[in-house]
Design a protein around this nucleic acid. Structure first.
Lengths: 203, 203, 203, 203
DNA sequence: CATTAACCGAGACGGTACGTCCGGTCTTTTC
DNA sequence: GAAAAGACCGGACGTACCGTCTCGGTTAATG
């Protein structure tokens, strides 16, 4: 878990980086193998070749470990992706982005861990805060920036609340993903984008 | 879990109805007190004054118990609500329905158990099937029926897929609820309905 | 541990006798292999093929387990040994008894467990009480009975306190055993008996 | 080049005397508070304001620390007590010595630590050797010297083995102390001395 | 007098065992 | 024959210490 400048926390300088990575990797691999429900701190520690206390020292819950594992991965690959594409056509750009999202959600390697995280934050208050700060808010900012540009270009109704717009576009997709109420196909996300944008266009 | 006419299943006729109700009530109460993660079969049995075996005999998992508990409640109150309102104005009716939904989701008595069920079905295959059959599909049918009538009345684009339409309306709401990305207010749901319907109107 | 007629104790009727024996056997064997200090409840449970809770349910400490293990053995073999030998010669009888004791103390199979028990009761109040009641007092009674007969036969000073006499005879032996201040030989115990009896004779 | 005889042992010259004393004091105090079984190196280090390594550097086990703690105390007070009293009457002298011993054993401040040491040497080979060399043997020598003088004065049988005599006198007392089979009173020790000496007198 | 080697406090680390909780099964007794 | 009760095997929990291992920071003898 991130930035915790509290008093009696362990000293991050003395932290063993190799152990940290081994733990995150083990957690990510295990959640894919057995699922979040059967994921145990004991198994993570054993797989990582680490004492349990080393996990308890640095993370407050197994959800937090998984969160950092996902964060590590997303940071590994996400460096240098500071904004959403802007070709001039909002509709085309959104379709591109949602298709990419769907591709990731359909990858079994990422599906189970992300699913686990998304259900864990439903119950874990502290984890939810970290999730918002480290993953949700940054992404939200990118989306808002892209939509604001479109709004300024007259492609969106000037009175539309951008956060509502984001939810109209991504909400249906994420809901279908979590609830498994249907397949995640490119055609499906294209339809979402088309329908949502028609509702969000200037009158 | 209900109705299981398989071979060596226990005889439902001999079932103790008082125990069944005590278990469901205990489960519902406990999930509100300690959350689904810390909910244990042992605690349910103790609270209900029941042997553990009596739970294992009739339900395959604690998720299933909770599911039945919720079902009991929804049936207690839902009898005789066979369809969604139809005043002639789709927009007004949807606003009414979503406002009612929001009121329920904001009730702390129902919030935690429903949240628990919605995250449990993400991981539990069998529970998801029961959920779809007993809760989701019936509700989906009502929604589809109401939207079809609107479509026939020319209030929706005739080419629109009704399931997509449902997701465009309820997806953003459910997503905000589960992810807690914002407050659930009547104004918010009204905005959803307005925006979604504009995107779904006949061209 | 024995006789505990307290209220919320587990029901001894439902107790699994096979598990009880497996635990005691495992404890006895393990203490001989690794010593009392490295004896762990986990290892006993594993060796006995038993859940840890089954040990914690019936015994308050590992010392208590070991005590019962020793008790089981002593009862296995001790049935029908209701008194000390009485050939008419106290000196000869005591030499016989002490030689037998020494033989047992020199048997590595019994040495370590008994040593462990004798040091454990030094620190464990409850265990000490059980030890006194179940092992020490019965043996003490036998010794007292034999000495009383000798006293009545004029072989001991009529004013001698029998408990003191017992300590004069067995104290040096047990002390040398525990402190390992010398070898335990038949000659040594014979000398003890001779010297002690000379001090205890009628004046 | 300064004499560095031993292999990689720490340099006793550089040793921090304040730390050494703090450790021994902490160990002695703690063993009286929580008992030897619950005494931990961590707690000693914390109480003494010392790093764990400082303890491990200078002592091989917590028993050894306790041993040194007791040694420190006994040296603090014992300097200049090179021999046992000799008033001419062996019986009177022994009664005096045993009464003093009993007074110490009855002092709760010393009872628990000494009890702990006496049971620890039962299991710890190296500690037993140190105990014999530093505490037992010197005391044994004093006792032997006093008894030899008595033997030469004709107060003891000339054929009596002095080590056996020592055991006949101190064995019952130490055994009663460790096993708690009775109270340690001056009357009790007087009786021991009287009885033992009668058995050890010249014939 | 600066260098430097050792001790020192602190505490993270890989581990083992603790004593507890609960999962899911089985058995005994009662209704 | 279902139900209450609860013992049982198993396994994970989160904690306490073990003994080892760095990490700066003194501290004292050497060069």
């Amino acid at each position: 878990m991130p930035a915790k400048p509290t008093s009696n926390a362990p000293d991050p300088i003395r932290r063993n980086e190799a152990s940290r990575k081994a733990i995150l990797t083990a957690a990510f691999d295990l959640v894919g193998e057995v699922g979040f429900g059967k994921l145990s701190i004991e198994a993570i520690a054993a797989r990582a070749g680490v004492g349990k206390q080393t996990i308890y020292r640095w993370w407050p819950s197994k959800g937090a470990v998984l969160f950092d594992a996902l964060l590590m991965l997303s940071e590994d690959q996400a460096t240098g992706r500071p904004e959403l594409p802007d070709t001039g056509s909002l509709e085309a750009d959104l379709k591109t982005v949602l298709r990419a999202t769907v591709r990731e959600l359909n990858d079994p390697r990422y599906d189970e861990p992300m699913r686990a995280l998304n259900t864990e934050i439903v119950h874990n208050q502290e984890l939810a805060a970290a999730y918002t700060e480290r993953l949700h808010e940054p992404m939200q900012r990118l989306k808002r920036d892209r939509l604001r540009k479109a709004q300024q270009a007259g492609q969106l109704d000037p009175n539309t609340d951008l956060d509502l717009a984001i939810e109209m576009i991504w909400g249906p997709l994420l809901n279908r993903w979590l609830q498994r109420t249907g397949p995640l196909t490119p055609e499906y996300t294209d339809s979402i984008v088309e329908t949502a944008l028609r509702g969000l266009m200037p009158r």
